[in-house]
């Protein structure tokens, strides 16, 4: 395997790891907090919101936005580190 191939394999592995981390957060805020644990979290209230309900109708969406920008920012850094960025 050439050096370039090895480096690209390492790049892809790092990408997959980052992706797995982001998808774990994606799962936790929507499925875990918003659906599966909603009754338990509803016992806690923040302001006038029950926490589970807040995650389902507000919090999950805010987290999704942050997640995408975080991923884009980290990938731009990774692209440069492995010299696979455009122009």
């Amino acid at each position: 395997m050439t050096e370039q191939q090895l480096s690209r394999q390492a790049y892809w592995k790092r990408n997959l790891r980052l992706m797995a981390g982001c998808l774990a957060v994606w799962f936790v805020v929507s499925y875990l907090f918003g659906i599966i644990l909603v009754d338990q979290l509803n016992a806690i209230s923040i302001g006038g919101y029950n926490l589970g309900f807040w995650f389902a109708q507000q919090g999950s969406m805010y987290t999704f936005v942050v997640l995408i920008f975080f991923y884009a920012w980290r990938m731009n850094k990774l692209d440069r580190e492995f010299d696979v960025h455009e122009d």
């Binding site: 982001c22 389902a56 999704f64 995408i68 991923y71």
Partner: peptide
Amino acid sequence: LIAFLGYDASVYLMGWTGGYVLLALL
């Protein structure tokens, strides 16, 4: 839909926004 289903309409809110995370990452 949200007004009459309350919490249960959250599926549309999370489903139709969470898809963009998959789109951006995958």
